[in-house]
Every structure is written in C-alpha cells, then in structure tokens.
Amino acid sequence: MQTRNKYNAQGIDVSHWQCAIDWPKVATSGISFAFIKATQNKINPQFLANVKGAKAAGLMVGAYHYMDDSVTTVDKARAAAQVFYQAIQAAGGVNVFDLPFVLDYESNKQNLSKAALTANAKAFLDEIRRLTGVTPMLYTYPAFIGNFSGLSDYPLWIARYSNQAPVDASGWKHWDFWQYSDGQVGGTLPNGDR
C-alpha cells in the first residue's frame, strides 16, 4: 500500500470517550476532518453534539459504526446498519456528512469463522449503501484484515500506528484513510502538537 506524504489531509476520530470536544481548537490545530462514532448497538450519546460542533468549526465530517461481538449473524449486521442509519437521520440526514460512512470491524471474541466475519461485514456495508446511496468503507487493522475476503470493492481505512506503510492485504492494494496515530504513538498534529 502507498505511504503517507506531507500533502495528505489530517483528521481525527472521536467517540464518547473524549467527552466534550473544543471543536474550534481542533480546527485551528490544522485538522481538516473528523470521523465521529455514531453507534454501537445504540446511538452514541455524544454523536449529535459532536457532528454539530465539528460542522460549526468548518471540519469535514464522517460517521462510523463500531461492530461489536454481539453481532454474530448477517441479520444482526443488517439490524446494526439500521441503527446506524437512524443515527445518520437524527443528525440531519446523508447530506450533512462530507465523508464516507464507516464500518469499524476489529473484534472477534465469539470466534466466528472468516466466512462469517466477511458475511457480516458485507451485509452491513451493503445495507448502508442501499439505505444511503453512498458506498461506505471498512475500518480495521493489519492483524485483523485477513479475516475478510472479497470486500476490496469497498474503500479501506486502515489503522497502523507507525511510519511503515500497511502491506497489501485481503485484496486491498491501497488505503483511502490511514490512522497512523492513536494520539500517543505514530505522529503529530499538523501544527506540531501531539
């Protein structure tokens, strides 16, 4: 996969764990976009406020769903997509968002087969594309991406907290977004802050 360069836009992802966010400060740090956690079985309590605050600060905004281990079948994956879509609608609808919708899939504590993980991901992604008319993307990390096959028609957001480019995996030859830092490891903000 390709390496990063200084011309890549930089953004953040946030959830309820960050509590209240000073969005104007985020914007002045050089961040240009934010992916905001919308759902994980229910709407994230900070989601609507974060979307409103990020938009008001002039950031491009995307939303993501965290697929947890309670989703064990394609029917549950489609139901999770419905909850995610409800959050999108509650925030003002598809047109409020500037970035692709995202499925964050990175856990398998139920020890599902690779075929089941792929089927669940595909069911969720297909349902979001059907509901929104927008092609969503998959977020995962290098040690988990091998659980998926046949999904490379969907864009990829890869997490790899280092300066080393992710390797081609499971059919993906490039990333659309690269999460290269967790705030502690991997890099700095555009203004030089951590």
Results as ranks from 00 to 15, higher is better:
N163K: 14
A159V: 06
I88V: 15
Q179D: 10
F177A: 05
V134G: 05
Q179V: 06
A87E: 04
I158W: 07
F84M: 05
N95C: 01
P100V: 09
W175H: 06
A91C: 04
Y85A: 02
G171D: 11
P100H: 08
N147E: 12
A79G: 08
Y180D: 11
A80L: 00
V134D: 01
G171T: 12
F84T: 00
S162N: 14
S162K: 11
S107Y: 13
W178M: 12
A159P: 02
Y161I: 13
Y139P: 00
Q82C: 09
L99I: 07
L156C: 11
A80P: 00
T135D: 05
L99Q: 05
M137D: 02
W157P: 00
V167Q: 15
A169K: 15
R130S: 10
H174P: 06
F101Y: 01
Y161P: 08
K109M: 09
Q86H: 07
W157F: 01
W172K: 07
S113E: 03
A121M: 00
D182P: 08
Q179R: 08
G133V: 01
Q164W: 14
S152Q: 00
Y85W: 11
V83C: 04
D176N: 15
K122R: 15
L125P: 05
T118F: 11
A80S: 11
F124Q: 06
D182T: 12
Y161C: 13
A77D: 02
F148P: 05
F124W: 14
S113Y: 05
D98G: 10
I158V: 14
T118W: 07
S170Q: 13
A121C: 00
Q86F: 01
S149T: 13
V94M: 02
F148E: 00
T135H: 07
G133R: 03
F124G: 06
A123F: 03
A169M: 15
S162E: 06
N95E: 11
R160I: 06
D104H: 04
A165G: 10
A87V: 04
R78K: 15
Q82E: 12
R78S: 03
G133H: 00
N95T: 08
L112Q: 11
V102P: 08
G92A: 12
P142D: 10
I128G: 05
W178Q: 07
R130T: 08
R130E: 04
D126V: 12
L131N: 00
P100F: 08
S170H: 12
Y154I: 06
Y141P: 00
S162T: 13
P142Y: 09
K109W: 11
D182F: 10
N111F: 07
P166Q: 09
Q82G: 09
L151E: 06
L103Q: 13
N120A: 05
S170N: 13
Q82V: 14
A77M: 03
D168C: 15
Y85I: 02
V83T: 15
A80V: 01
Y180T: 04
L151V: 04
Q89V: 15
K173S: 14
L99D: 03
S107A: 14
L103I: 10
L138D: 07
E106P: 07
F177I: 14
S162H: 09
A77W: 00
R129G: 04
Q86W: 01
A80H: 01
N147H: 13
W178T: 08
R78M: 01
N111S: 12
L103T: 12
K173Q: 15
N120Q: 10
S162C: 13
Y161A: 10
L156V: 11
F97I: 10
F124E: 03
